[in-house]
Design a protein around this nucleic acid. Structure first.
Lengths: 250, 250
DNA sequence: TAAAAAAGTCCGGTAATAGTGGAATAGATT
DNA sequence: AATCTATTCCACTATTACCGGACTTTTTTA
């Protein structure tokens, strides 16, 4: 939670910064990385050698890319949770029965990350999976915020702010806190074009066996054809109830 | 390819070793990691702080786990390839039409890693995805070997050996090279219980637009009900042909 | 409940090494 | 062929990663 105090390892930080840069750039040459991270080519070179050695990167021609070792570890991170299999199955069931796009995301370090994104059992184009969302302007996000203690909510808003993504994004903290208040009263969150224009979504938080928030499930779709919020909320709530009972939430 | 020569960064190597250890252990406490990697607790502690800071790890209670940042990067590694979307769609199509388990894997650093694993469009339990396979005892693997130049094949066998996993595993290099020879002649590989007893699979390599091997596609299932090899091979070959032509392989 | 044990955190000094500049090599471009 | 650019390697020095040990917190045991 608090990143304060204590020393960090600069070398590791640099190596990981290179991974981040390669991820953002898709592919990169050594000199591009040297420029971007403002390091000498010789320094970058040793880092790259080390990362290639560990299979975190691959070199194709002169271009460096992310290695599949990261995919291997990433799948480990996703699947090595008690709730993985149940959450996956329930997400698919809901997508099947509602026919719209369903997303399951968990909170980590103040953002939501998509673990599943399915449209009627066709694991959609899949480019959403692994994506980060802010909590203030997504249905999963606001559902999660509504389930967190207010101190934590404020920590998160301090850290990430309330970036404006459409003209409907709530950028004022008081307004957001009221929205979250309403969300926790009625049990579901609503995102009305706050992330993408023309897109509405409704989300419900999922409680973890230990008591905290595990994540949230949401249904999203175009404004003009999505059923009313209450209807979506009740479908979500049913699935979440089943999910939680399978996980042994009391 | 050659990991020889040049210096490496010990600090980065240690940090990544910690990630590996956490991955293998599922979850780990600091002292367990200190024991396992034979480092002082103070050293481990700085590494862990740094990795938490970068969101590569999460701390739940006293246990450290892999963070979803790794999942984020892993999805980046998987999706940021020109062929990702086509390969995904073709894998699903084949699974649909053949009704058996279909796997798409790519080669990296001498092993195959599963990118897709589908049973009739139900993305199966999914625990196979992200898994590494040896090339010498899997259908995807032998298909890939058959498409690689012999020098490379020998490099790979030198590095990984031919570990025995069942009594049917080919553990002799000469025998394997003959098998690969036959594979490249007939255009498909056969894995007859070499990885798991009772399980057979047939694989076909996929050529990349640049000319090399991209990966391979295979169909696998229990001995007693899987159609004959030739039949599976021709289904696979049809899909691979379509895949390659969509990718613009000449 | 208290005491002991274990685990985790922090700090200062020193030996190890990460980072730099610059030289050498390899590749691309004209 | 010659120039330019990108990558790799090498040797030196300042930096910093690592350890020992003290301190704090948590867990176990009596």
């Amino acid at each position: 939670m608090d990143s304060s105090g204590g020393r960090r390892l600069q070398t590791t930080e640099t190596s990981l910064a290179i991974i981040d840069a390669v991820n953002e750039m898709g592919e990169a040459r050594m000199s591009e990385l040297a420029d971007r991270l403002d390091l000498s080519t010789s320094t970058i070179h040793v880092h790259l050698k080390t990362l290639l050695d560990q299979e975190y990167l691959v070199k194709r021609g002169e271009q460096y890319r992310l290695g599949m070792k990261l995919f291997h570890l990433g799948e480990g991170a996703r699947t090595r949770n008690e709730w993985y299999e149940v959450a996956r199955r329930k997400t698919h069931e809901l997508a099947d029965s509602c026919g719209e796009e369903v997303t399951f995301a968990v909170e980590e370090y103040g953002r939501a990350i998509t673990l599943f994104n399915v449209v009627a059992n066709v694991p959609s184009k899949g480019f959403q999976v692994g994506r980060y969302y802010y909590l203030h302007n997504s249905a999963v996000g606001k559902a999660i915020l509504a389930a967190l203690p207010e101190t934590r909510v404020n920590e998160i808003l301090d850290r990430w702010g309330l970036p404006e993504e459409t003209e409907y994004t709530i950028t004022d903290r008081e307004t957001l806190l009221e929205d979250i208040e309403r969300t926790s009263e009625r049990g579901y969150s609503v995102n009305d074009q706050e992330a993408v224009e023309g897109l509405r979504s409704v989300g419900v938080p999922v409680t973890a066996p230990h008591g905290g928030v595990l994540g949230a499930l949401d249904i999203s779709g175009p404004l003009y054809r999505l059923p009313p919020n209450e209807e979506l909320a009740s479908m979500l709530q049913d699935v979440v109830d089943e999910l939680e009972s399978e996980l042994g939430v009391q």
